[in-house]
Computed example of a mutant assay.
Amino acid sequence: MDMTTVGDPGLLDALQHEVAVFARRAEQTRLGGVGQVRNSMDRAAYLLLNRLDKEGPMGVKALASGMGIDSSTVTRQVAPLVDTGLVKRTSHPEDGRAVVLQLSPRGAARLAEVRSSRRRLMAELTEDWAPEEREQFCTLLTRFNHALSARTAQGGPAAAERSPQS
Protein backbone atom coordinates (compact mmCIF):
# COMPACT_ATOMS: atom_id res chain seq x y z
CA MET A 1 0.00 0.00 0.00
CA ASP A 2 1.26 3.46 -0.88
CA MET A 3 1.57 5.16 2.52
CA THR A 4 1.53 8.63 0.92
CA THR A 5 -2.16 8.17 0.13
CA VAL A 6 -3.12 7.19 3.68
CA GLY A 7 -4.59 10.09 5.62
CA ASP A 8 -4.96 13.75 4.83
CA PRO A 9 -2.09 14.86 2.55
CA GLY A 10 -2.27 18.42 3.94
CA LEU A 11 -1.97 17.15 7.50
CA LEU A 12 0.89 14.80 6.58
CA ASP A 13 2.68 17.70 4.85
CA ALA A 14 2.21 19.85 7.94
CA LEU A 15 3.42 17.03 10.19
CA GLN A 16 6.59 16.37 8.18
CA HIS A 17 7.31 20.10 8.07
CA GLU A 18 6.89 20.49 11.84
CA VAL A 19 9.12 17.46 12.47
CA ALA A 20 11.79 18.98 10.20
CA VAL A 21 11.55 22.34 11.99
CA PHE A 22 11.70 20.59 15.37
CA ALA A 23 14.78 18.60 14.36
CA ARG A 24 16.56 21.74 13.14
CA ARG A 25 15.70 23.76 16.24
CA ALA A 26 16.53 20.92 18.59
CA GLU A 27 19.94 20.55 16.95
CA GLN A 28 20.53 24.32 16.98
CA THR A 29 19.84 24.56 20.68
CA ARG A 30 20.75 20.94 21.47
CA LEU A 31 17.86 21.34 23.90
CA GLY A 32 20.72 22.16 26.20
CA GLY A 33 18.74 23.60 29.03
CA VAL A 34 19.13 26.87 30.81
CA GLY A 35 21.72 28.47 33.03
CA GLN A 36 25.42 27.68 33.11
CA VAL A 37 25.08 24.18 31.65
CA ARG A 38 23.17 25.29 28.55
CA ASN A 39 24.55 23.59 25.42
CA SER A 40 27.34 22.02 27.41
CA MET A 41 26.78 18.34 26.59
CA ASP A 42 26.31 16.98 23.11
CA ARG A 43 23.48 14.62 22.26
CA ALA A 44 25.64 11.50 21.90
CA ALA A 45 27.28 12.02 25.29
CA TYR A 46 23.93 12.70 26.97
CA LEU A 47 22.33 9.58 25.51
CA LEU A 48 25.30 7.36 26.42
CA LEU A 49 25.52 8.68 29.99
CA ASN A 50 21.76 8.44 30.41
CA ARG A 51 21.70 4.81 29.26
CA LEU A 52 24.57 3.83 31.57
CA ASP A 53 22.79 5.58 34.44
CA LYS A 54 19.48 3.83 33.80
CA GLU A 55 20.79 0.37 32.91
CA GLY A 56 24.06 0.15 34.81
CA PRO A 57 27.49 -1.00 33.67
CA MET A 58 27.65 -2.80 30.33
CA GLY A 59 29.95 -3.70 27.51
CA VAL A 60 30.31 -1.76 24.29
CA LYS A 61 28.30 -4.32 22.28
CA ALA A 62 25.36 -4.23 24.70
CA LEU A 63 25.43 -0.44 24.80
CA ALA A 64 25.56 -0.23 21.00
CA SER A 65 22.75 -2.74 20.58
CA GLY A 66 20.52 -0.94 23.06
CA MET A 67 21.07 2.37 21.29
CA GLY A 68 20.63 1.03 17.76
CA ILE A 69 24.14 1.99 16.64
CA ASP A 70 27.27 -0.01 15.86
CA SER A 71 30.04 -0.82 18.31
CA SER A 72 32.63 1.31 16.52
CA THR A 73 30.39 4.36 16.92
CA VAL A 74 29.98 3.70 20.64
CA THR A 75 33.73 3.19 21.02
CA ARG A 76 34.40 6.50 19.27
CA GLN A 77 31.73 8.37 21.25
CA VAL A 78 32.70 6.95 24.64
CA ALA A 79 36.45 7.67 24.30
CA PRO A 80 36.19 11.38 25.22
CA LEU A 81 33.83 10.49 28.07
CA VAL A 82 36.49 8.17 29.48
CA ASP A 83 39.21 10.78 28.88
CA THR A 84 37.25 13.41 30.83
CA GLY A 85 36.41 11.02 33.66
CA LEU A 86 32.65 10.85 33.06
CA VAL A 87 32.79 7.13 32.24
CA LYS A 88 35.20 4.55 33.53
CA ARG A 89 36.25 1.23 32.08
CA THR A 90 36.25 -1.65 34.52
CA SER A 91 36.72 -5.40 34.35
CA HIS A 92 33.61 -7.50 33.93
CA PRO A 93 32.75 -9.05 37.32
CA GLU A 94 32.38 -12.57 35.85
CA ASP A 95 34.99 -12.40 33.09
CA GLY A 96 38.00 -10.31 34.04
CA ARG A 97 39.16 -10.20 30.42
CA ALA A 98 36.04 -8.34 29.28
CA VAL A 99 35.65 -4.61 29.78
CA VAL A 100 32.48 -2.87 30.88
CA LEU A 101 31.65 0.81 30.77
CA GLN A 102 30.34 2.42 33.91
CA LEU A 103 29.15 5.89 34.79
CA SER A 104 31.68 7.45 37.14
CA PRO A 105 30.64 9.52 40.17
CA ARG A 106 31.76 12.59 38.22
CA GLY A 107 29.67 11.44 35.25
CA ALA A 108 26.63 10.90 37.46
CA ALA A 109 26.99 14.39 38.93
CA ARG A 110 27.41 15.97 35.51
CA LEU A 111 24.44 14.07 34.12
CA ALA A 112 22.28 15.21 37.04
CA GLU A 113 23.32 18.81 36.40
CA VAL A 114 22.47 18.59 32.68
CA ARG A 115 19.16 16.81 33.37
CA SER A 116 18.18 19.53 35.82
CA SER A 117 18.98 22.23 33.28
CA ARG A 118 17.04 20.44 30.55
CA ARG A 119 14.13 19.87 32.92
CA ARG A 120 14.01 23.63 33.56
CA LEU A 121 14.03 24.27 29.82
CA MET A 122 11.13 21.84 29.27
CA ALA A 123 9.22 23.58 32.08
CA GLU A 124 9.82 26.99 30.47
CA LEU A 125 8.84 25.84 26.98
CA THR A 126 5.61 24.26 28.20
CA GLU A 127 4.78 26.60 31.08
CA ASP A 128 1.43 27.56 29.57
CA TRP A 129 0.47 23.93 28.84
CA ALA A 130 -1.93 21.99 31.01
CA PRO A 131 -0.37 18.97 32.74
CA GLU A 132 -2.49 16.71 30.52
CA GLU A 133 -1.07 18.40 27.41
CA ARG A 134 2.51 17.81 28.60
CA GLU A 135 1.67 14.17 29.27
CA GLN A 136 -0.04 13.72 25.91
CA PHE A 137 2.85 15.36 24.05
CA CYS A 138 5.35 13.11 25.85
CA THR A 139 3.26 10.02 25.08
CA LEU A 140 2.94 10.91 21.38
CA LEU A 141 6.60 11.90 21.02
CA THR A 142 7.64 8.62 22.67
CA ARG A 143 5.38 6.70 20.31
CA PHE A 144 6.80 8.61 17.31
CA ASN A 145 10.39 7.88 18.43
CA HIS A 146 9.59 4.18 18.87
CA ALA A 147 8.14 4.06 15.34
CA LEU A 148 11.29 5.71 13.96
CA SER A 149 13.49 3.31 15.90
CA ALA A 150 11.53 0.29 14.68
CA ARG A 151 11.77 1.50 11.10
CA THR A 152 15.53 1.92 11.43
CA ALA A 153 15.85 -1.55 12.95
CA GLN A 154 13.91 -3.04 10.01
CA GLY A 155 16.40 -1.55 7.59
CA GLY A 156 14.20 1.26 6.30
CA PRO A 157 15.63 4.35 4.62
CA ALA A 158 16.77 5.70 7.98
CA ALA A 159 19.02 2.66 8.52
CA ALA A 160 21.65 4.15 6.25
CA GLU A 161 21.76 7.22 8.45
CA ARG A 162 21.90 5.56 11.85
CA SER A 163 22.01 8.04 14.66
CA PRO A 164 22.08 7.60 18.45
CA GLN A 165 18.80 6.39 19.86
CA SER A 166 17.66 6.84 23.40
Rank of each mutant, 00 (worst) to 15 (best):
A26L: 10
T152C: 04
A150C: 05
S65G: 13
M58Y: 08
D83A: 15
G56F: 04
R97P: 04
A98Q: 11
D95T: 09
L31I: 11
S104D: 01
S65D: 14
G10I: 01
V34R: 08
A130K: 11
A44E: 05
S72P: 03
A150P: 01
G66Y: 11
N39D: 15
R97D: 14
D70L: 10
M58W: 05
P9V: 12
P105H: 05
P164H: 04
N145T: 09
E94R: 11
M1S: 09
L121E: 15
K54T: 04
H92D: 15
N39S: 12
E124S: 14
L48K: 01
A98K: 14
L125W: 09
V19P: 03
L140P: 00
R120N: 12
H146I: 13
A147Y: 03
G155V: 03
V60Y: 08
S117C: 06
V78Y: 02
R97G: 12
L101Y: 12
R38H: 12
A26S: 07
D53M: 00
D95L: 04
R43P: 06
E127L: 10
D42R: 13
L86Y: 08
R25F: 07
A26H: 11
T29G: 11
R51K: 12
G35A: 06
A147L: 13
A112P: 01
E55I: 01
V87C: 03
M1D: 11
L15A: 14
F137E: 00
Q136R: 09
A153G: 03
D53K: 00
G35M: 06
R43G: 12
P80V: 08
L81K: 06
T4A: 12
A14M: 04
I69C: 04
D83R: 14
E113R: 04
G66E: 09
H146R: 15
R38A: 13
H92Y: 06
V37Q: 12
T5Q: 10
V114W: 01
V19N: 05
S72V: 13
S117H: 07
R76I: 13
F144M: 02
V37P: 10
G10N: 01
F22K: 02
V82Q: 07
Q165F: 07
I69K: 01
M41V: 05
D53F: 00
L15D: 02
R25E: 08
S149G: 03
L148F: 04
T142V: 07
D2E: 14
E124M: 15
L52A: 06
Q16T: 07
L63R: 15
S65V: 06
D95W: 04
P80Q: 10
R43Y: 07
M41H: 13
P93V: 10
Q28G: 15
P164V: 08
Q36A: 15
Q154N: 05
T142N: 12
D2Y: 05
R43E: 12
L103A: 00
G32W: 05
A98E: 10
Q16V: 08
R89N: 10
S117L: 08
T4V: 06
N50I: 00
A45T: 03
R151W: 09
K61F: 08
S116Q: 11
Q28F: 11
L103D: 00
K88H: 14
L48A: 00
G56P: 09
R120W: 11
L141F: 14
R89Y: 08
V34Y: 06
S163G: 02
